[in-house]
Design a protein around this nucleic acid. Structure first.
Lengths: 206, 206
DNA sequence: TGACGATTGATACGCAGTTTCACTTTCCTA
DNA sequence: TAGGAAAGTGAAACTGCGTATCAATCGTCA
């Protein structure tokens, strides 16, 4: 049916199992709510054992997180490919374009995840934990670009945190409104606040 | 022995029990590491039953969080007391002064918490969850001050997120270095990055 | 094909967090 | 100040997450 390619059967099966768990978990969470679905329930519907579930995902919450790690890799690669004399925030913003496209394609999954996270602080927390990893990566990328030769200092870390906040808010607004505005534009708007609005917020009354 | 005052005996006992749990938990976590301490261990050393522990703290992790909620209340009150025509970031920064003093007094506890959080992502996540609450509060305060009459929009939320990031990084740097620099100064520096450095990061090469 | 390594499933266990109920302590009022 | 209401405590049983172990099965490669 399909040529074997370079990916082994084992590897393909692993991917299948992983996606199967994710798809079915999201289905069940959506049907009954996160906490009324046990890992046994997921395993049963997936027809794969509970033991195996925990080999793929360290916790029940992680099955929700999706491909965040891969996305971060993408983003990092895009960033280091940008011209090093470009303003850092512009580099970042351009690097986010490809990512925004990926996200648009998976929007419905994100919406489901967001709804679940709203009712369950522990899941929100898990998402924030991943964002902390992103933020640290940003800080390293920024430190490389700026003068911080001794790793990320306060400066890089604050900028990274602010950028992460902008992205987070943009994504959240994008998921909150019902698809009327595109993510790329919202990210642009959020970055504008960062560069301009903050400056004004510090200096001007209001 | 002591005049009853306005606080009932019940209320005082509750505070005592709460503090006792927190103190002993921190001791034990420090001795053995968070995950090698069971709630039973804490209850046993505190000579208060496990049941009671869960009446005071919803989870084992929460015993670590301390008085974050009270601090947020303080901060909110300080902010709304500022002149409404002052630049918002300056209002916030001034409101943070009293808070920084409280934190300085509890520094050793924060250091212990930070060390524990570094090894245990779930605790880090719990901390971030609290920060999300702070951030939302900031967003509301900002929305009141700015034009957002219909609740916090993208603008207020991005600014709030950036501010939260600045505070978080400042506190973390403060805890990382061994007490040589004072928190108030680090917060000032972080805010400076927000107002000035970000502006430059957006416009200038580097 | 046969042997080896990786993956899976079954079982048992420790511990977090919930629930229920009986018991004790504090508070309030007659 | 006695006695009942209300709040707080402790014991025990239960659910479900996450871990460890081991035998059985599957994919790989010679």
């Amino acid at each position: 049916m399909s040529e074997p390619g370079k990916v082994s059967l084992r590897e393909r099966k692993k991917q299948q199992v992983r996606r199967r768990f994710q798809r079915i978990a999201l289905e069940l969470f959506d049907e009954r709510g996160f906490e009324h679905v046990t890992v046994d329930d997921i395993a049963e519907r997936a027809e794969i054992s509970r033991s195996t579930f925990f080999r793929y995902f360290p916790t029940k919450e992680d099955v929700l997180i999706g491909r965040a790690d891969e996305h971060l890799e993408e983003l990092r690669d895009a960033f280091v490919a940008r011209a090093p004399d470009e303003p850092v925030l512009r580099s970042l913003r351009h690097s986010l374009e490809a990512l925004a496209a990926s996200y648009e394609a998976e929007r419905s999954d994100f919406v489901a995840m967001r709804r679940i996270a709203q009712d369950h602080p522990s899941i929100l927390a898990r998402g924030l934990e991943h964002q902390a990893v992103w933020e640290e990566t940003f800080a390293e990328l920024l430190a490389d670009r700026l003068q911080d030769t001794t790793g990320p200092g306060l400066h890089s870390r604050v900028v990274a945190g602010a950028v992460m906040a902008a992205i987070r808010v943009a994504i959240d607004e994008w998921l909150a409104e019902d698809g009327s505005r595109d993510l790329q534009a919202l990210i642009g708007e959020a970055f504008e606040v960062l560069g301009d609005g903050l400056f004004r917020a510090l200096r001007e009354p209001g």
